[in-house]
Structures are given as C-alpha cells and as structure tokens.
C-alpha cells in the first residue's frame, strides 16, 4: 500500500453514468490485475474504492460509475486537479492459476478490473475468451480494447441492443466448453450464476461497502468456506470453492 497524490489527466463520461479517469502518479504498488485503489474525495469522510483497469509506471486508468454523492463530485473534477489515493490494495486475480484456455466473464463495470488480468493471460500465451455483459448498448465499455488485446470477445445485453440478447450465462452456454479456468467480475448475482454454471475451477472478485480498504477495520468481512475473510485485504478475489453465495 502506498499513499500518494495523483493528477487528473482526463475524466470523461464513456457510457451511461460511467466515467474513465486517467491519472498521473506513482503506480509502483500496483502489482496484479484486479487490485484496487482508494480515492479520498473532498467533503466525504470515507475513501471510494475503485479497481484499476490498467497502469504503466507513471499513470493508471480507472472506470467508475456515478452511484451517489461521492462519485458525483468525482465526476465533476477536472484535468489538472489532484487526488489523494491509496494504491496497491487487494490481492488481485491470480493469472498463474490458469494453465490452459481461460474464460473471463464480466458484467457492467466489472469489465474494467479484469482488463489487466486478460493482458497478463495473453502475455503468458493463453487463449482467452472474454464474455462481457451489459444491460444495454449505452452501458458498454472496453469491448474494442479487449479485442485489440487479442482476446476473443462476446457481448451479451439484456435488451439485445448489442451482441446476444440475454445474460452472460446464455453466451457461455453457446460456447464450446473447452476452458480450463475462469475468472469473473461483476454483479454478485451474475458471478454466482457463472460460478454455478461452470464445472471448472475459477475465481471471482467480490465487492462490499468498505471502511478502510486496507484490512484494519474489518468492515467488509464476508463468510467463506475458510472462515471470515476481509474482502479488501484477503480479497477481493476469492477462489470459487471459497465463496459462500
């Protein structure tokens, strides 16, 4: 974990209520895809935990959705303004757990934290199939970026305005089932359905309202088959068999 100042380079709406935030600063604590950062927003007591889409040595990109007053204030911040951010939080996905063909299933904003994972998997030489689910076309993010990485990308939307009409599980059912490992990130109901529909090992990134984001307050604890775990520090990524839905 590291606390540092980041300067906003870009903060723009890219989908319905969804913003892309490009930040310049010290990313040395970011190690794995699926890790998150915790932003202090002026006027709000608690930080806002947001996963990183990708980063290089001196900048990173976050996607966030305006869901309340804090993220609303964040969405109004301008290029050049600074943010106090804790970086390098959470365990992130374990790319090395995948030994063969990978299936990555994301819902909504969950497309963001899985991005660096997919990059890592492709770099390791794995075939990666990415299934992205959204409510509607206007919610869609990162589909082209995933294609540019070299992943096989499938889209599902609930209203059929892009890709297959239906759920990500409908798309998965239509794919040839030759995957060795899966990763999922998105709404809890979606991840539960994904975990239950696949008989291969995998992992999911959980979410909960957090206090500290760094393991000291025990505010975001969940039940697992291995006992009580802090989503912020022991997770947010847990193996399928550890999760109690």
């Amino acid at each position: 974990m590291k606390q540092s100042k980041f300067i906003i380079r870009e903060n723009t709406a890219v989908a319905d209520h969804v913003y892309r935030l490009v930040l310049d600063g010290d990313t040395s604590e970011m190690k794995r895809g699926g890790q998150f950062v915790d932003l202090a927003i002026h006027g709000f007591f608690l930080r806002r935990p947001i996963a990183a889409q990708k980063w290089d040595s001196e900048s990173m990109i976050l996607f966030y959705k305006v869901v309340g007053n804090g993220t609303d204030v964040l969405s109004r911040m301008q290029a050049g303004e600074s943010l106090d951010i804790l970086t390098g939080l959470g365990n992130g996905f374990n790319a090395s757990a995948c030994k063969g063909k990978a299936l990555v299933v994301c819902g909504g904003l969950g497309a963001s934290p899985a991005f660096t994972l997919v990059k890592e998997l492709l770099l390791c030489g794995h075939d990666v199939t990415v299934v992205l689910g959204f409510n509607k076309y206007d919610d869609m993010i990162l589909a082209d970026e995933y294609r540019l990485l070299g992943a096989e990308v499938h889209i599902a939307t609930l209203d059929g305005s892009a890709g297959t009409k239906g759920f990500v599980t409908d798309v998965i059912a239509s794919l040839e089932n030759d995957f060795d490992y899966f990763y999922t990130c998105g709404p809890k109901v979606m991840m539960k359905a994904v975990c239950n529909s696949l008989d291969i090992p995998g992992e999911a990134s959980l979410e909960e309202r957090m206090g500290c984001g760094c393991g000291i307050c025990y505010g975001c604890t969940c039940h697992t088959t291995k006992g009580a775990k802090r989503i912020c520090a022991d997770g947010p990524v847990f193996k399928k068999e550890e999760i109690i839905w």
């Binding site: 007591f45 909960e208 975001c220 009580a228």
Partner: peptide, 11 residues
C-alpha cells in the same frame, strides 16, 4: 463473525 454486511455507512 460479527454482524452481516453492509456494516459501514458514511455520514
């Protein structure tokens, strides 16, 4: 275990 989540709220 403590209470169920959410167990943090902002004011």
């Amino acid at each position: 275990f403590g209470n169920e989540c959410p167990r943090i709220a902002e004011t």
